[in-house]
Amino acid sequence: MSLDIIRSDLLDGVPHGFFTRKGGASSGVFEGLNCGFGSSDQRDIVAINRARAAAAMEVTPENLCSVFQVHSADVVTIDAPQTGDIPHADALVTATKGLALVILTADCQPVLFADRTNGVIGAAHAGWRGAIDGVLENTVAAMVALGAERGNITAVIGPCISQRAYEVGPEFLDDFLAAGDTNARFFTNGEGDRYLFDLPAFGLNALREAGVGACEWSRHCTYHDAARFYSYRRSVHRKEADYGRLLSGIRL
């Protein structure tokens, strides 16, 4: 089966892709292109999946640069293929040709960035915690430090959980209101004391406030499309033992 890769016109001319779960070697609950070594999937099978993604991006697996994601706002700058332990962070930036920046998600926002004019790219993993703490703004700032210009940066949020699937409790809303009263606009009422949170709208707002020239969400919901996407929340609701991780990447 061939790979199913979602691309954006906003990043046209920059090799990139939001890979779906189709076309992989994994089976069971991981069926498809599970690229997460942190899952309980067989490591050699995950390596095969990552090699397929690398080939699609026209780099070697060794040039897939990643981070040990911890739901932080931390960003690292990459200028060479990684060896040894990878850094704990949730975003990467580079101005080095031939390197692919990749992040893994399963409901959180995968965000790819590019300043074509100045030759700087970035990739971020932005769940609610990283997003509220500023991982997207920090990624833009790290790109600027490498020579990018905010107005030249385009950013695309790939498949993630949509508002209709993201039910949260009142304490979750309180965290966002504590960060800013205007954050109430990203919530609608759910059943009882529950709310529905619009993660991609929050991400788009953060990107616009960071001054990027253009941004968009792919409008694919990971929770509601089990055939194409892994979803942590869906796996919990189904009482599955584990879940796969989707890879998103970009390179110069």
Rank of each mutant, 00 (worst) to 15 (best):
G98F: 06
A165Q: 09
R129P: 04
H224L: 13
P170K: 08
D115E: 14
E171Y: 14
I48G: 07
S218N: 10
I103S: 03
N189K: 14
G158W: 01
E31Q: 11
P200Q: 01
S8V: 09
Q109Y: 08
D198R: 00
S8N: 08
C221W: 05
A179Q: 13
G23P: 06
H220T: 15
G151S: 11
D79L: 10
N34I: 00
F68E: 13
V93A: 02
H224K: 15
F202R: 00
R245P: 09
C35V: 02
D198W: 04
A100M: 08
I157S: 00
A47C: 08
E58F: 09
V46L: 05
S72F: 04
K22Q: 12
A178V: 13
E216D: 11
R208N: 11
R238A: 15
N118H: 15
G119Y: 06
L173R: 15
R43Q: 14
H125L: 12
L177D: 08
R185W: 10
A114Q: 02
G122T: 03
I6E: 12
S2P: 15
G169K: 07
L173W: 11
A106D: 08
N189R: 13
G147T: 06
H237N: 14
A201F: 05
G17V: 06
G13Q: 03
T94D: 00
V168Q: 01
R238I: 07
H237G: 15
D193R: 15
D85W: 13
H16Y: 07
Y223P: 06
N138W: 06
V14D: 03
R52F: 03
E58W: 10
A145S: 15
C160L: 02
G23T: 04
L246K: 01
V236Y: 12
G169W: 07
I121V: 13
Q109D: 14
G249E: 02
G122I: 01
L3Y: 08
F37L: 11
D107E: 03
G180I: 09
Q82C: 04
H125S: 05
H71S: 15
R150Q: 10
C35G: 02
G134D: 04
A206M: 03
A54G: 09
G98W: 05
H88R: 12
I157Q: 00
F176Y: 10
G28L: 04
P170A: 05
G23V: 03
I153Y: 03
Q69W: 05
R129D: 14
K97C: 12
E58P: 11
A227D: 13
